[in-house]
């Protein structure tokens, strides 16, 4: 039992964005959520995180409807990294990561050794310790994403949901970030644009098309030429070799 969606739908302004999606997170590993723009990836992530209330169906955390769970309790086990986080508050990188401790701390309570350790470990695992004292506003796009992931890790979540975290990064930082995800030790759901990255770094792929979840499974099973043609409206050839699944577009 982890995080699952059963027949979840979400309508915004009369338009159905997510339609009748049933999805269960694998016990471990990285689940890649792929699909064209507007296919409902981000909305599905928000529904899974309990940030939006579905107009139908339900999201369950360990079998309990997410709408029945207090926000603070959700935040103690499920963390979210947005596509691009912005703030006008003059925070240091470490202060941003420390925000991740908020759900673990009661009001008035002191900053504990455990908080300190969680922040340090999160900075360590994302390789951002050397940037801890730096101001958020002076970090590069890749560093900001890593700090946001570190903030999410400081929440000590069991599930980490990321919405196209590589969108604003150059290729090197994209690969750095994708390599980081399987090593984090949490279940990860990541919305992605790049099918090759999804194939290379995700243990499982879920494909969204026009608000529906149309396929879920191992990359080699799911990502075939006919599905890619149908969903993304491009001609592709897929080769499965010892180095993994490669997709070429024409």
């Amino acid at each position: 039992m982890t995080l699952s969606a059963e027949n979840v739908s979400w309508t915004a302004g009369g338009a159905p964005i997510v339609r009748d999606v049933t999805l269960a997170l694998p016990e471990k590993g990285v689940l890649g959520l792929v699909g064209p723009n507007g296919s409902g990836k981000s909305s599905l992530l928000r529904l899974l995180a309990g940030l939006r209330r579905g107009t139908g169906g339900a999201v369950y955390v360990d079998g309990q409807p997410i709408t029945r769970i207090r926000r603070a309790e959700i935040a103690r086990r499920l963390a979210v990294v947005e596509q691009q986080a912005t703030t006008e508050v003059a925070l240091s990188a470490r202060e941003v990561v420390a925000l991740g401790r908020a759900p673990q701390r009661a009001a008035w309570s002191a900053w504990t050794e455990r908080d300190e350790a969680a922040v340090a470990s999160a900075l360590e695992r994302t390789g951002m310790m050397h940037r801890a004292a730096q101001q958020w506003s002076t970090l590069s796009g890749g560093e900001r994403q890593r700090i946001q992931i570190a903030r999410a890790l400081a929440q000590e979540p069991r599930e980490l949901l990321l919405d196209e975290p590589t969108n604003h990064l150059d290729i090197r930082h994209q690969l750095d970030l994708m390599r980081l995800l399987p090593r984090l030790g949490t279940r990860v759901v990541v919305a992605l644009h790049d099918l090759n990255q999804a194939a290379a770094f995700c243990s499982e792929i879920a494909v969204m098309h026009e608000g529906r979840l149309i396929a879920q499974g191992a990359p080699a099973q799911v990502l075939n030429a006919s599905l890619i043609g149908e969903v993304f409206a491009v001609d592709a050839s897929v080769t499965c070799g010892p180095t993994g699944t490669r997709i070429s577009f024409f």
Binding site: R46, A49, G50, L51, R70, R71, A72, E73, I74, A75, R76, L78, A79, V80, E82, A85, T86, T87, V89, L91, V96, L99, G100, A102, P103, R105, A107, Q155
Partner: peptide, 21 residues
């Protein structure tokens, strides 16, 4: 509510995902 106010640094969705109602 000071911690909740801290959590609004990155916007309301970020605050919600940090456990703020």
């Amino acid at each position: 509510r000071a911690r909740a106010l801290d959590a609004f640094a990155f916007g309301e969705d970020a605050a919600a995902s940090l456990g703020v109602d």
